[in-house]
């Protein structure tokens, strides 16, 4: 098991003292090699859940356990280290660092992890080549197409060979053709053994992974294993 969520509850308190319950008592396990697609309408709490899984958003109550360690019992510094080494993250808007080129954007988490510059750059270059960006190594984000930026962001998420790759609406800003291309990329990465949890509001993508979780009003409404037949349909 890669990650275990125990009774996660997340409540946001606004300035006007109104509170919003974003995630309500969610428990789930992520097994090695799984590709979980979390689906739900806007405001269903799926992104909040993903950020909580990613050691970025402490839950109001409950535990996120990774390799026997409660992530939120760790100091901020150790939690950052855990996030750097064990968890990869792909954002909806890619969030590439504007002043770093593709190679440097991908290598940055590896440098943070303490890799030598040479090793980090080599690993980044290998990943970018694998995802077909060998010709774009020295390009800044503004010089890349949307699909290329997304692939750079995926490479960045994978550079430290994390236990789990979390993707928040990775196709949210894409046309159907690019969406299919990106999903194929995720499936390919998953086939090579990478555990993935992806959040999307697009119901058409619910069959992409091998487990589908449907969220509604902060809770898991339905959960099912996606069979090969489902995918064929």
């Amino acid at each position: 098991m890669i990650l275990q969520l125990n009774d996660i509850r997340k409540e946001f308190k606004g300035r006007s003292n109104h509170s919003v319950l974003a995630v309500d008592d969610v428990s789930m396990q992520v097994e090695a090699g799984e590709f979980i697609v979390v689906n739900g309408a806007s405001g269903s709490g799926k992104s909040t859940l993903l950020f909580t899984m990613g050691a970025m958003l402490p839950p109001t109550s409950g535990q996120v356990v990774c390799d026997g360690t409660d992530l939120y019992a760790l100091s901020p510094s150790r939690r950052s280290k855990m996030r750097n080494l064990r968890i990869g993250f792909v954002f909806q808007t890619f969030n590439l660092i504007s002043y770093l080129n593709s190679l440097e954007n991908v290598a940055f988490p590896a440098l943070l992890a303490g890799s030598s510059k040479k090793a980090a750059m080599q690993r980044a270059e290998d990943l970018l080549n694998r995802l077909g960006l060998g010709e774009r190594l020295s390009h800044l984000p503004v010089e890349l197409s949307v699909g290329e930026r997304q692939r750079v962001a995926i490479c960045r998420g994978l550079v430290n060979a994390p236990d789990i790759l979390l993707a928040d609406e990775p196709t949210g800003n894409m046309d159907p053709e690019l969406t299919q291309e990106t999903m194929e990329l995720f499936r390919g990465i998953n086939r090579q053994g990478q555990t993935i949890v992806m959040v999307t509001h697009n119901p058409e993508l619910s069959e992409t992974g091998n487990r589908h979780v449907l969220m509604e009003k902060g809770s898991i409404r339905a959960e099912r294993i996606v069979s090969a037949e489902d995918k064929a349909l």
């Binding site: 510094s77 950052s80 280290k81 996030r83 750097n84 969030n95 660092i97 988490p109």
Partner: peptide
């Protein structure tokens, strides 16, 4: 802020 948030998200510590 988004850039700093990203740097933090990919594992940069508060001290970093």
């Amino acid at each position: 802020l988004i850039e700093l948030a990203t740097v933090a998200a990919v594992g940069c510590s508060p001290a970093g």
